[in-house]
């Protein structure tokens, strides 16, 4: 949801190691991340902060790492998985790399080596940075409006 960006970010894990000099924190062991409707799961999470302790990015790594979010219109769910999910809350962008899969309920499914997902707009961009990566797209047909379908039947 667009409002997810405005929510606090919570991370749970078994172990936590912070290097406040480098503003980097590594969490390991059943890492779980929540921000509004966004939920992430991974084996390892690396949190990068700026000088003011604000979060810049959270990199989730797992076999696979998972991320899910409730979509704004219609309330369907987006479910994504990949070896690495680089989530930047500030720019509402999740870069999935390594067997990346994004499934948006009622819309479609995207597979590829690298997928960029916008957690505010739900926009999906595929292909590797070098432009050579292949993306497999499966879009679901827009569901027919039951009322219109009935009209079409009677006109026949």
């Amino acid at each position: 949801k667009k409002s997810d960006q405005e929510q606090p970010l919570d991370v749970y894990a078994n172990h936590f190691q912070a290097d406040q000099g480098k503003q980097t924190t590594v969490l390991s062991g059943s890492v779980k991340l929540t921000q509004g409707t966004i939920q992430g799961e991974a084996d390892k999470g690396t949190v990068h902060q700026d000088k003011n302790n604000q979060i810049q990015r959270v990199v989730l790594e797992g076999k696979p790492a998972r991320l899910q979010q409730q979509l704004d219109d219609g309330g369907g769910m987006m479910r994504a998985s990949a070896h690495t999910i680089d989530y930047a809350g500030e720019s509402a962008t999740a870069v999935l790399s390594g067997d990346a899969v994004v499934v948006q309920e009622g819309r479609g499914e995207f597979r590829g080596e690298r997928i960029v997902y916008n957690t505010a707009s739900g926009e999906v961009t595929g292909g590797s940075e070098s432009g050579s990566g292949r993306v497999h797209l499966k879009m679901l047909p827009k569901p027919k409006d039951p009322a219109k379908a009935a009209d079409a039947e009677t006109k026949k």
Binding site: Q5, E6, Q7, P8, L9, D10, V11, Y12, A13, N14, H15, F16, Q17, A18, D19, Q20, G21, T25, L27, V47, Q49, N52, N53, Q54, I55, E90
Partner: peptide, 29 residues
């Protein structure tokens, strides 16, 4: 706000370790 059970801190190198049951909460800027 960082919470955990068991902690090690090096005040010289600013390294902080929480050993179990970690819950890190980061407010929205």
């Amino acid at each position: 706000i960082l919470r955990g059970t068991g902690m090690k801190a090096d005040l010289e190198t600013h390294q902080l370790e929480l050993l179990a049951d970690v819950h890190a909460s980061f407010a929205r800027p």
